[in-house]
Each structure stands twice: as C-alpha cells, then as structure tokens.
C-alpha cells in the first residue's frame, strides 16, 4: 500500500466541501474547529495531488508511520490491577 498521510483539507465554500465527499476518501472530523469547511483525512500522495489540482487546500501534517514507539498490548491482569489500585487510591482520597 502506498504511504498515507494525515492531512487537513480545506474547501473554499460549502459546495466545494460537499463535492469532497464524492472522492471516497478516509475523512474524519476536523481538528480545525474554527474552519467551517475543513476536514481531516488519511490519504495517499496521489490523492493529495488530485485534491490540490481540484482547488482544495491540503495541509499535510504527518505520515501514517507511528511517531511514538509502539509496544505490546497491556496484559489484562496488570491492567485490572492498575484500575482497581487507582480506584482504591481515589476512595482513600475521598475519605
């Protein structure tokens, strides 16, 4: 699979924003709350190019490559001990 990038795509108006939905891209809510016609996405460079050619502004933010170290999942017994331990501590604090 081609590398993908986390991006923010901005449209100039609602009409252009609605047309964006026809591109079949992986889009999700925008982190740019102050921008009315912006949406985040995870897309390939070819898609970035197509969008730019079609008049969208695309901010390429970060690669999909994990930026923090990945690790093994939590073991359930350890995780449960942490949750119960934290609850005990909060109960003591409440008293």
């Amino acid at each position: 699979m081609a590398d993908r990038f986390f991006v923010t795509i901005s449209a100039r108006d609602e009409q252009q924003f609605r047309r964006l939905l026809d591109y079949d891209l992986d889009l999700f809510a925008s982190r740019q709350a102050d921008e009315a016609y912006a949406v985040d996405g995870l897309i390939g460079l070819d898609e970035v190019q197509r969008l730019v050619e079609d008049g969208y502004q695309v901010l390429v933010a970060e690669s999909e490559a994990p930026k923090v170290e990945r690790g093994r999942p939590a073991r359930a017994d350890e995780w449960l001990r942490l949750v119960e331990g934290e609850l005990d501590m909060r109960r003591r604090e409440r008293r």
Binding site: P66, V68, E69, R70, G71, R72, P73, A74, R75, A76, D77, W79, L80
Partner: peptide, 19 residues
C-alpha cells in the same frame, strides 16, 4: 501495533469476564 497500554481483543474479553 498501537502505543503501549491499550488492551487487545483478548484483553477486553478478559475484562468482561472479570466483571
């Protein structure tokens, strides 16, 4: 692999069983 700390599928199942 995600960042460390999250429960995987078996971990979530184990927590339901624990409950």
């Amino acid at each position: 692999m995600p960042p460390p700390g999250y429960l995987d599928v078996a971990g979530i199942d184990a927590c339901v069983a624990y409950l």
